[in-house]
């Protein structure tokens, strides 16, 4: 394995409830790269995100995943988060009764503590979050509410981006973050992602549509079909897919 890889997925097979969802998927991501994963419904796009984030129900049956040279599959979801993996959920979970701000500070400080840093006090933390809310054109009142409880689709996705900006991941996985967003929200969310782009941080953008990639320019585009990557290319591949749909991929492979 070359040491300059952030993520090295080798021939991974995974199943959920006995159903095989990834069937020998390989993908390499270097620091600073933006990779887009496209593909038809049921191709395994969300399965890939969930395997990387460590959801229990997704069992890896074969293959290896190295993250920063370490065996990712040995790490619990919280350890993955501490080491810089962040997944923006396709459907952020509503948690009534858990205060949004309190949750964010718990997450933020859990990561700091795991990395040997002092936890941040409530007041400076709130100032930091409020500033990020401004960047996301998000009403800070959402911080006072229960986590995602009763948030609209767009508000939930903004809240995901807020967490991403707070946690400053090394690898951010956006699992169909664009689904159900209007054009304004799409712009705001893309701006958030673009503002975080640098030579160290990588993104895995999982999406159905080319539209998001007009805002977030990927370095690489991969087509995922039937549990593996069947075609890879540069940004122009996304345009081709938009024009022709996914049917031709199946014919070609």
């Amino acid at each position: 394995m070359s040491s300059d890889l952030l993520l090295d997925i080798k021939n991974v097979c995974a199943s959920v409830e006995e159903k095989q969802v990834l069937k020998g998927l390989s993908l390499q991501i270097k620091p600073g790269e933006v990779h887009a994963i496209m593909g038809p419904n049921g191709a395994g796009k969300s399965s890939l995100s969930n395997v990387l984030a460590g959801r229990d129900a997704f069992k890896v049956t074969d293959g290896e995943i190295a993250y920063c040279g370490e065996d990712l599959l040995e790490l619990s979801p919280e350890e993955r988060a501490h080491k810089g993996i962040f997944m923006a959920f396709q459907y952020p979970v509503e948690i009534p009764g858990v205060n949004n701000l309190y949750f964010m500070r718990s997450a933020f400080n859990a990561k700091r503590e795991a990395n040997g840093e002092e936890p941040m006090e409530a007041y400076p933390f709130m100032m930091k979050v409020q500033q990020l809310c401004g960047e996301l054109e998000m009403n800070p009142d959402f911080l006072k509410r229960a986590l995602n409880d009763g948030f609209s689709g767009g508000e939930k996705k903004r809240n995901e981006m807020l967490q991403m900006m707070l946690l400053e991941p090394k690898l951010a996985i956006l699992d169909e973050t664009d689904s159900g967003l209007d054009i304004d929200a799409l712009r705001v969310i893309s701006n958030a992602v673009n503002s975080l782009r640098n030579t160290e941080r990588s993104f895995l953008v999982v999406t159905h549509y080319q539209r998001l990639l007009d805002y977030i320019k990927p370095d690489f585009v991969h087509v995922l079909a039937n549990g593996k990557i069947v075609k890879s290319g540069d940004a122009s591949l996304a345009l081709e897919l938009e024009e022709k749909g996914y049917a031709w991929i199946n014919e070609e492979v």
């Binding site: 979801p77 501490h82 979970v93 949750f103 997450a107 795991a114």
Partner: peptide, 9 residues
């Protein structure tokens, strides 16, 4: 899972 994926033990 949601909470754990954010780093909360």
């Amino acid at each position: 899972f949601y909470l754990r994926s954010r780093g909360i033990p």
